[in-house]
Simulated scan of single mutants.
Amino acid sequence: MVKINAKAASVSFRGVTKIYGRDVVAVDDIDLEVAAGTLVTLLGPSGCGKTTTLRMIAGLEMPSQGQIFIGDKDVSTLPATDRDVSMVFQSYALFPHMTVMENVSYGLKFSGFDKSETKDRAVAGLGLVGLTGYGDRLPSELSGGQQQRVAVARALVLEPQVLLFDEPLSNLDAKLRRQVREEIREIQQNLGLTVVYVTHDQEEALAVSDEIVVMRNAGIAQKGTPRELYEAPASAFVADFIGEANLIPCEILSVSEGMAEIGIGSFRHQLVSRGLAPGKARVAVRPSRVRIGAAGQGMPAKIAKATYVGSRMEYTVEAEFGQLFAVLDDVASPLEPGAEVMISFAESGPVLVPE
């Protein structure tokens, strides 16, 4: 059962458009529902509209058309100061001359709390992010990950209805990103917070989200759980953006009882038709779903590149339709560049997408 904080509120976009100047459409007529107590990630390439969407929730931008609700309240025209929302920025935005405790307490001073309650809340906030005892330090005395946690604590102590994250991990190295994203997810789940999270990192989105909203060209390309988007992308764009995918041109030869037989040259494979009719299409195949063998059924191909990355081998394979990227767990007996092989697909995993 999902725990929902008493203050956590839903977020609803109804036909929201944001236009800059005369004709720059940053967000184009989107409908979006974020359930209370969930973490929803807005994911997409630069310029797709995800940060503008986040800033409209925060009240830092106003919609040109449509309505935004936080809970049952229409906040479409309310300034940021009148919304019960906190935001954690990419740059942390800590005051360098203030101690950690002063940074965390800063927003509380303007929220009507007395000195004693302000201190108690700040101490509790530091405890939530694992920084008990760090209150007297300056930001310059902390690591990047610790500074980010101070920024999270500063937002948490205000107990907002909605907590917003704008690319919060982009300034951290890979190992620290993984650690801090796990901490953010754990805090969100333990406290039952409503969180809207913006990133362009697919792995990060898959790891932290209850639901992912993939944005493209100012609109929503697809929304769903991480598993739904990874295993059943609605388009070639989503397939390629959510994790790596080989997009291979194919021909749907026949469809029967929801199953399609596809042809790639002389190779045949059966998979779910997903409502597509016979004709040209593409099949999206994850690198881990490519099968490479020395003989047997499949498509003839040649190993172009072989790269050892520790836990697996990565291969670039040349076939008649072009290049294919594949990963295999067998690092003990790697295939050499130039080797002639046969390639095929795992029974489950490949999915059809429109051409």
Results as ranks from 00 to 15, higher is better:
Lys3Arg: 15
Ile4Val: 15
Asn5Trp: 08
Asn5Gln: 11
Val11Arg: 03
Phe13Lys: 00
Gly15Tyr: 03
Gly15Trp: 01
Val16Lys: 02
Asp29Ala: 12
Asp29Ile: 07
Ile30Arg: 01
Leu32Asn: 00
Glu33Tyr: 13
Val34Thr: 01
Ala36Phe: 00
Leu39Phe: 02
Leu39Ile: 05
Thr41Leu: 07
Thr41Ala: 07
Leu43Phe: 10
Gly49Arg: 00
Thr53Arg: 00
Met56Ile: 02
Met62Thr: 15
Pro63Thr: 08
Gln67Cys: 13
Val75Ala: 12
Ser76Trp: 10
Arg83Gly: 11
Leu94Pro: 05
Met98Ala: 10
Met101Asn: 09
Val104Phe: 01
Gly107Lys: 03
Ser111Phe: 10
Gly112Trp: 01
Phe113Tyr: 15
Ser116Glu: 15
Glu117Asp: 12
Gly130Asp: 08
Glu141Trp: 04
Leu142Met: 06
Gly145Gln: 00
Gln146Pro: 05
Gln147Met: 03
Val150Ser: 01
Leu156Ala: 03
Leu158Gly: 08
Val162Ile: 06
Leu164Cys: 05
Asp166Asn: 10
Asn171Phe: 11
Lys175Cys: 02
Lys175Phe: 00
Leu176Cys: 02
Val180Glu: 04
Arg181Phe: 05
Glu182Lys: 09
Glu183Arg: 09
Ile184Gln: 10
Val195Asp: 05
His200Thr: 04
Ala207Phe: 10
Ile212Ala: 08
Val214Glu: 04
Ala218Pro: 05
Ile220Glu: 07
Gly224Ala: 12
Arg227Asn: 14
Glu228Pro: 10
Glu228Val: 14
Ser235Asn: 06
Phe241Thr: 05
Ile242Trp: 14
Leu253Phe: 10
Gly258Phe: 06
Gly263His: 07
Phe267Tyr: 13
Phe267Asn: 05
Arg268Gly: 00
Arg268Ser: 00
Gln270Met: 15
Ala284Tyr: 01
Arg286Ser: 02
Pro287Arg: 00
Arg289Met: 13
Ile292Phe: 09
Met299His: 05
Pro300Cys: 13
Pro300Gln: 13
Lys302Ala: 12
Thr307Ile: 15
Gly310Ala: 13
Glu314Thr: 07
Glu314His: 12
Glu320Gly: 08
Phe321Ile: 09
Gln323Trp: 11
Ala326Met: 06
Val327Gln: 15
Pro334Phe: 06
Leu335Gln: 10
Met342Pro: 04
Ile343Val: 15
Glu347Trp: 13
Val353Met: 01
